[in-house]
């Protein structure tokens, strides 16, 4: 196990969390809750893209683990 694969795993978890948030945002009938879920989804998306950048760097540094 390397850092890169750990970070990747974290990113995948966040991605599924993002999906759940978007589902909740669609299904919730309370406006306030809907908005909170939606905003959270966008923020999670930002974190994901940050992590993706970091994964790119890590794979560049340890190319042997690429794709794991």
């Amino acid at each position: 196990m390397t850092i890169a694969s750990n970070v990747k795993q974290c990113m995948v978890t966040l991605k599924s969390a993002k999906e759940t948030l978007s589902k909740l945002a669609q299904k919730s009938r309370d406006e306030q809750a809907k908005r909170t879920f939606h905003e959270s989804m966008i923020e999670v998306e930002e974190i994901i893209s940050d992590l993706q950048k970091r994964i790119g760097q890590l794979e560049f540094e340890e190319p042997q683990y690429k794709g794991n």
């Binding site: 850092i3 795993q9 974290c10 969390a17 589902k23």
Partner: peptide, 20 residues
């Protein structure tokens, strides 16, 4: 289980990021 799962996974990610 949707909501508790989401909460748990977000908590896990937060801890992961701190660890990293």
């Amino acid at each position: 289980k949707e909501k508790p799962l989401l909460l748990a996974s977000l908590k896990k990610c937060q801890a992961d990021l701190e660890l990293f």
